[in-house]
């Protein structure tokens, strides 16, 4: 029972912090608890949220994907370039390009047996370079034919912005996939012990490849949405997003060593970091540099506390 309480706290420690942040915000800032502000927070974080969901799958297998920021840029540029051919072509090709590069990551990691850190670092550099080279460092404007993309970036369904709707949908699917499909269970198994998973006869290589392709695809979706919101594909977009995504995953409670965590945890992590950023902005007196320092410190505190809780769980 005690272990279960700790495990619950560990999973929902970020949730407690999120609720606390919201309460503080509501009491301190008149503007915080308005639908406009909250939807804003959600919309601003929807793209990072999609990237973080893909990152969750990768980290659950015990891997890491540093290339997601660059893949966001690649997808955005591809979508902008192809937008004269129509919104659907732009959307599909943007996602497919990023997914393909993610798959390359996966193949190199599982078949050629190079460490994920190295493979995705190389992809991060190379993909960013490709995006810059293909555009000569200029942003690519959306074609007039891509009115669908404009809706994707700025439209809404019953008051809910489309990016937010996509975010929530993606997390729902991600949660179900992790908990109720074989693929999801295998993702956990491989992160827990790849050796054991192989000895139990799981197709570990294919699962690993699939998670990196999925991470690429979600980064691609985020990239297309970003392009739609900005009205142009920018080769320098989403720099450093890989680190924000990793931070959100870890704050949410997913272990970097793999095997424990989930989609729900990451969504909470994304929202927590987003709300805190929002509070800084509402406060208005904290310079961005100090915001970085405080976010870094906050990340450390969360990880230390989680480590403690985990050790307690391990020792019963």
């Amino acid at each position: 029972m005690g272990a279960r309480a700790v495990s619950l706290l560990q999973r929902s420690g970020a949730l407690v912090a999120l609720v606390a942040a919201i309460v503080v915000g509501a009491m301190r800032y008149y503007d915080f608890l308005t639908a406009e502000n909250l939807l804003n927070v959600l919309r601003q974080n929807s793209m990072l949220g999609l990237v973080a969901l893909g990152m969750t799958f990768v980290i659950l297998t015990g891997g890491i994907d540093l290339s997601v920021g660059s893949l966001v840029a690649v997808a955005g540029v591809v979508a902008a370039r192809l937008s004269p051919a129509g919104s659907l072509v732009a959307l599909v090709c943007g996602i497919a390009a990023a997914a393909l590069l993610g798959l390359v990551n996966g193949v190199l990691i599982s078949k050629v047996r190079i460490q994920p850190f190295i493979v995705t670092l190389a992809m991060m550099i190379a993909a960013r370079g490709a995006a810059l080279a293909a555009t000569s460092e200029q942003s690519v404007s959306l074609g007039a034919a891509a009115s669908g993309l404009a809706w994707l970036g700025r439209g809404d369904v019953g008051g809910l912005p489309v990016p937010v709707l996509l975010l929530l949908l993606a997390y729902l699917v991600g949660w179900v996939a992790l908990r109720y499909t074989r693929f999801g269970r295998y993702v956990f198994a491989i992160g827990d012990s790849e050796e054991a998973a192989r000895l139990m006869g799981l197709p570990a290589d294919r699962i690993v490849m699939a998670t990196y392709a999925l991470s690429g695809a979600l980064a691609g979706l985020a990239g297309v949405i970003l392009t739609a919101r900005l009205g142009a594909g920018q080769p320098v977009a989403a720099t450093g997003w890989e680190l924000d995504a990793i931070a959100a995953v870890v704050v949410g409670g997913t272990l970097l060593s793999g095997g424990q965590g989930g989609a729900g945890s990451t969504l909470i992590g994304v929202l927590l970091l987003g709300v805190i950023f929002n509070l800084f902005n509402l406060e208005g007196t904290i310079t961005p540099w100090w915001q970085w320092v405080m976010r870094g410190a906050f990340l450390l505190v969360v990880v230390v506390v989680q480590g403690r809780l985990q050790r307690r769980e391990a020792h019963g």
Binding site: R185, F188, A189, D192, S193, E195, A196, A197, L199, M200, G259, Q260
Partner: peptide, 11 residues
């Protein structure tokens, strides 16, 4: 023993 330590007996 090659088992998944974070997962349950049934899993």
């Amino acid at each position: 023993i090659h088992l998944l330590t974070h997962r349950t007996v049934a899993e």
